[in-house]
């Protein structure tokens, strides 16, 4: 009796460990317990973003510590006991100029890399393929406009999770995308506003009905793996239940996936790509 319970325990432990290990090998972009920093960066945009964030972060830590330090000094030196007679100083031109000009300079130092990164992350320069993302209450649909594949992606409900799958993050049909490929992302929505956000890619874009928004990503081959994201704009009751899961695979694997997918998902309905081309050039009322 006792033995069998121990056996069971070990079995659970073992399967948990293998799940965790195998997860380690593939899953790159999922949140980790007690995480207090960014997830792994998979795209150059996210790499730069983290670098830039760290720059601001340390500047701001310095500011906060500076203020804290001044306050500590004040508490020690200028409490009523230590300093019974208050001064009457109320002006010091040098100081007043300093605490106006120095923040300006700090902000300039922040603004320059900020704007550079902004322009860099804006749009794909030479997109090699396009993924069209459409949001619905409460799932995503994806169209590979170059190869004409389209499918929906739904969250796997809790009671159907297989071991190793992540609650609230895993989906029935993951998006599969090739590494080393500059991918243009086009997004829109069928109903309310949602937001397609995958942290490791540095992509976070509202999907707005009536509009087509654009973003882009490229994942180098050494970052092959699975990346998770969640809908990030309140979209109604199941806002928490429309995750995003992306498999980044090698170009070769992608080709074989494509071949499979074409039979699995079938082709787009005929008019869809036309709709898209029109929408890109000039979104108009008819495009909806």
């Amino acid at each position: 009796m006792i033995n069998s319970r121990w056996m069971l325990f070990l079995l659970v432990l073992f399967s948990a460990a293998t799940a965790a290990l195998s997860a380690d090998a593939q899953v790159v972009g999922a949140p980790q317990p007690w995480e207090w920093y960014f997830r792994t960066a998979a795209t150059p945009v996210q790499v730069d973003l983290i670098w830039f964030h760290d720059l601001i972060f340390w500047v701001e830590v310095a500011i906060v510590l500076f203020v804290l330090g001044l306050m500590a000094y004040i508490v020690v030196k200028f409490n009523a006991k230590a300093n019974p007679v208050p001064s009457r100083t109320t002006h010091n031109t040098f100081l007043e100029v300093a605490w106006t000009v120095i923040p300006v300079l700090i902000l300039v130092v922040i603004a320059i890399p900020s704007l550079r990164l902004l322009f860099f992350m804006d749009k794909a320069k030479n997109p090699e393929m396009t993924l069209k993302i459409t949001s619905h209450q409460w799932y995503w649909s994806y169209e590979y406009t170059d190869s004409g594949i389209a499918f929906d992606s739904n969250m796997i409900p809790e009671d159907q999770l297989k071991p190793g799958q992540l609650r609230l993050l895993d989906v029935d049909n993951r998006v599969v995308l090739p590494a080393d490929t500059e991918i243009r992302l086009l997004m829109t929505s069928e109903d309310v506003i949602h937001n397609w956000a995958v942290q490791s890619f540095g992509v976070r874009m509202d999907t707005v009905p009536g509009r087509i928004n654009e973003s882009w990503m490229i994942v180098p081959a050494d970052k092959i793996g699975t990346y998770y994201g969640q809908c990030s704009e309140l979209c109604g009751v199941n806002h928490a239940y429309m995750p995003i899961a992306v498999d980044i695979v090698s170009k070769r694997d992608f080709q074989s996936w494509l071949a499979q997918a074409k039979t699995k998902f079938g082709r787009l309905d005929a008019d869809a790509p036309v709709k898209l081309v029109q929408a890109e050039t000039q979104p108009s009322l008819d495009a909806r």
Binding site: P31, A197, H239
Partner: peptide, 17 residues
Amino acid sequence: MAGMPRRIADYPDAFAG
């Protein structure tokens, strides 16, 4: 920083701590 969206009543387990 770890990417937890706002306005959700239930969240992936990793955010528990």
